[in-house]
Nucleic acid binder design. Structure first.
Length: 259
DNA sequence: ATGGTGGCAAGGCCA
């Protein structure tokens, strides 16, 4: 089973590019972030026509996550637990069953800039809620993954120019520590597990020719429970999409699970 | 130090 995470930066502007990729790839499940759309305006038919089931957790203008799946989506849950007052749409999860049942969680972790400030406080609080949900997933001792735009550069080697990010919310020591706290509960970070991955990025800013100079960062991650890590066959970053017409500033990360 | 780009949606906000 191939499961992808992809921050598409606006479904309205990107549905054609997304469909082009779906038509030429063989992904079974796609976790989308930054759809920037309310549920009613999400073009579900485009994906249903291609054999995908669709679950959306949208929001007007910003954020928004969704799941596309060729397998039925069961037990869909929207919103990260732990704060009833949080109105931002950044989390969606569901169970997909091929040879094995996998719990897939799609997430769009807050950017957090400028730091310090209320947005950074929100990011850290969100990461603490993520940690608590992560503990529950591990306790279930079943195949599960949390994939998405984490807005975290885990290590200096995950940025072409780490010095540029020193005071940025994506790379501050507190951010990296909070991410480590989640991973070290017992997850396998899929790409890091497969390669040392220096020079492998998933985001290039639209500005200043970042793509042409390969001035990227690796901030889209797939975290696997031990039971899912046992099923890991392959990991791929589809960086080629970043060079196409009207690209997202992120590219997909695809894991292939024996499931 | 500033500005550099892009999406949503219709004026800024967010990244």
């Amino acid at each position: 089973m191939k499961i992808a995470t992809f921050n598409i930066n606006g479904i309205k502007a990107r549905h054609q590019a997304l469909c082009d990729w779906l038509d030429e790839s063989d992904v079974d499940v796609v976790l989308l972030q930054e759809i920037k759309s309310v549920n009613e305006n999400f073009p579900s038919e485009l994906f249903e026509d291609r054999g995908y089931n669709v679950a959306v957790h949208g929001q007007k203008g910003f954020n928004g996550v969704a799941i596309l799946s060729k397998l039925p989506l069961e037990d869909v849950s929207r919103g990260l637990p732990g704060d009833e007052s949080d109105e931002q749409s950044r989390w969606i999860e569901a169970t997909v069953t091929g040879e094995r049942a996998i719990r897939v969680c799609g997430l769009y972790l807050p950017n957090g800039n400028p730091a310090p400030g209320p947005k950074y406080d929100y990011k850290l609080a969100w990461m603490e809620r993520l940690r608590r949900r992560a503990e529950e997933l591990l306790a279930a001792e079943e195949p599960a993954l949390m994939a998405g735009d984490y807005n975290v550069i885990p290590q200096p080697e995950d940025a072409a120019k780490p010095e540029k990010w020193e005071t940025d919310a994506l790379f501050l020591p507190q951010t990296r520590e909070a991410f480590r706290k989640v991973v070290n509960l017992g997850f396998t970070e899929a790409l890091r597990a497969r390669t040392r991955s220096p020079g492998v990025y998933t985001f290039w800013d639209y500005q200043a020719g970042a793509w042409n100079r390969n001035d990227g960062i690796r901030i889209d991650h797939v975290l696997l429970t031990p039971q899912a890590a046992d099923l890991l066959r392959d990991v791929e970053v589809v960086s080629e999409l970043r060079g196409r017409e009207k690209p997202s500033d992120h590219v997909p990360v695809v894991v292939d699970l024996e499931a």
